[in-house]
Design a protein around this nucleic acid. Structure first.
Lengths: 151, 151
DNA sequence: CTTATTTCAGGGCCACTGATATTA
DNA sequence: CTAATATCAGTGGCCCTGAAATAA
């Protein structure tokens, strides 16, 4: 991922835009989350979003999973390979379409997702430290509106 | 850059966290901005934040610029090489320390920064469509608080 | 025959680590 | 002598493009 600004020198007027602050905040949060957990959980933190989607929607085709995280179908092959090597997911033949590999969490995968969810909740508390419940809710709602505005 | 969730399948409870929405919103906004402008402006959109910092703080050493965007000093060498090849920045010897290369925008660099700032303002309007001025200000303030919470 | 799903081979981009030369 | 600055060579991660095999 692209270059992420942080402390020290500031970019003038740009600093007071949603786009810039979004980038700075996300990069700091993401790097922190992954750096703390990579040693313990391998590739899982990076693909926590994907693992959560697989857990919520078991048995989906790789194609649909690729769309859901906005990567090419061919790119998902290596991602699932790695998560499968780590024992977190498994491919099973689809009952209705012999072309598709349906992807499921393993038992270990479910445990790792649950553990990462707990860690993410701790990070979430840190991200929102000093905010009232109403402020936190507003931030979540407005971020959702930004996403909707980009569709 | 990590995998970015988008439409279609959703990750359950994770979807209502600051961390997740930050990632989805930032990735969508960043990809959109870079994809639209890369053909016209080359590497500049990717390093718009850095170019803005150089414009606001001319003559800084490469080391300090590297810190400001959270990359290694050695990584900045290639970045400045490329921006210099494109005629946007130039290295000048420091008057006070012969070890340092002070980095400055060229005239072309200043024009590109101004043009990108205008394009970024248009994107900013899109990101915040449908928000009141108070909501937009709250979003900017709360994102700043997230950044501060991570320091 | 055309389309969809997965896989594979090759390539590109980008940042990092570690070593080196120069200067403070 | 130690520390800081910039650079370079090498490496690895991650995703993409385009082609191939299988099946709908």
């Amino acid at each position: 991922m692209p270059p992420p600004p942080s402390p020290g020198l500031e970019p003038g007027a740009l600093a007071d835009t949603i786009g810039y602050r979004l980038r700075v905040a996300q990069l700091a949060a993401y790097r922190r989350f992954e750096a703390r957990l990579a040693a313990e959980f391998g590739g899982a933190p990076r693909y926590f979003g994907l693992l959560a989607i697989i857990g919520e929607h078991p048995g989906q085709a790789q194609s649909r999973l690729a769309e859901s995280i906005a990567v090419q179908r061919s790119s998902l092959v290596a991602i699932i390979d790695r998560l499968a090597e780590e024992g977190l997911v498994e491919r099973r033949p689809s009952a209705t379409d012999r072309r598709v590999n349906a992807v499921w969490l393993t038992g270990a995968g479910e445990r790792v997702v649950a553990e990462l969810a707990a860690r993410a909740a701790a990070e979430e508390a840190r991200l929102s430290a000093g905010m009232t419940a109403a402020e936190r809710a507003a931030l979540i709602r407005l971020l959702g509106q930004v996403v909707d505005n980009l569709r």
